[in-house]
């Protein structure tokens, strides 16, 4: 049954119910009087419908939208199974702010490190000259600093944030996973390592960003406020900050381009990339493939909840 059909049948039942109630209430009245009351009721119902339509919150509308999408998807790819939320809205927002700022920082920063590179002049002229390019770099820097602060608060204040942070801490299992993964690549063992919510690959990505942000923002602030910095530090400290900023930028860029891009874009499972960063959802199939431990944990939790509900009833 399609959504429209469902809606129609629902409306029809409701209309019949009202009709019946009105007919019952006006049975012993004159036809003209009955018609008046009927008219009143109709107007009142319309008013109520309109009000209902208005008070449906944005969240409800989104949920409806998601349900509809989900249904469509399930019709198209039944093998994918149920969809789970992997990244919440707050987390997705952080990621978008971060990658926007990092892209801005790279395209305005790399031309300073490599003035002879073919694209450098183009990238600088993109903003209408070097001066503007430095302003864009500082805008990117501002965004990255905001992201860092936001993420720190998120880690401390949000339940999901705290949970994820704990799960992102490297454990001995990660080392074992790495060894097994390599053995799997080499054909020594048939099974892939079974990852939890975050594989060692994702943990590396996360901590690389952490480390990168600390170094880049720290050294970048020295260069941004060079005049203030020189009040308290000798020039050779600024030279060190400059070198760190430049080298760490290179490291971060390579880590993103090689490691992150391979794992989320060029990996044959993902090519040319998924929209997970946008909708934050992961299919049951992918869950089982990539995060089997988390999936099992989720299922265990769900069955426990269901069992609890049954006992409560």
């Amino acid at each position: 049954m399609s959504v429209d059909e469902k809606k129609n049948s629902k409306r029809e039942t409701l209309e019949q119910e009202i009709e019946a109630a009105v007919a019952e209430g006006t049975a012993d009245l004159e036809p003209s009087e009955a018609e008046k009351i009927r008219e009143k009721v109709r107007a009142r119902v319309l008013e109520e419908v309109e009000r209902e339509r208005r008070i449906r919150t944005a969240a409800e509308r989104r949920a409806e939208e998601r349900r509809r999408r989900e249904e469509k998807r399930r019709e198209k790819h039944p093998e994918e199974g149920e969809m789970f939320q992997r990244f919440n809205r707050n987390f997705r927002f952080q990621h978008i702010v971060m990658f926007t700022s990092v892209i801005l920082l790279i395209i305005t920063g790399m031309p300073i490190k490599f003035p002879d590179f073919v694209l450098s002049r183009f990238l600088v002229n993109l903003w209408g000259g070097f001066h503007n390019s430095t302003i864009v770099h500082r805008i990117g820097a501002g965004m990255l600093i905001y992201f860092m602060v936001h993420h720190l608060f998120y880690t401390v204040l949000s339940r999901q944030g705290r949970r994820d942070f704990v799960l992102l801490i490297p454990t001995p299992k990660d080392a074992r996973d790495l060894v097994q993964n390599i053995r799997h690549f080499l054909g020594k063992v048939p099974e892939k390592p079974r990852f939890g919510r975050f594989s060692y690959i994702e943990k590396f990505d996360y901590w690389a960003v952490y480390w990168g942000c600390v170094i880049m923002i720290g050294s970048g602030l020295f260069l941004w406020g060079e005049s203030i910095a020189l009040k308290y530090f000798p020039k050779y400290i600024l030279d060190v900050a400059h070198e760190m900023h430049s080298d760490e930028a290179m490291l971060a860029t390579l880590a993103i381009v090689i490691w992150h891009f391979y794992n989320v874009h060029f990996n044959p499972d993902r090519f040319p990339g998924t929209l997970m960063w946008w909708h934050g959802e992961i299919s049951e199939h992918e869950m089982k493939e990539e995060h089997p431990l988390e999936y099992e944990e989720m299922m265990a939790k769900r069955s426990k909840q269901e069992a609890a509900e049954v006992t409560n009833r």
């Binding site: 203030i228 009040k231 020039k235 050779y236």
Partner: peptide, 23 residues
């Protein structure tokens, strides 16, 4: 704000252990 700190170190930074160990 440049003060005496500006003179601590080289302006033309040659990256060698003798001239700029930190860098």
């Amino acid at each position: 704000n440049a003060g005496a700190n500006f003179a601590k170190g080289y302006v033309h930074v040659e990256v060698t252990p003798q001239k700029a160990m930190g860098v």
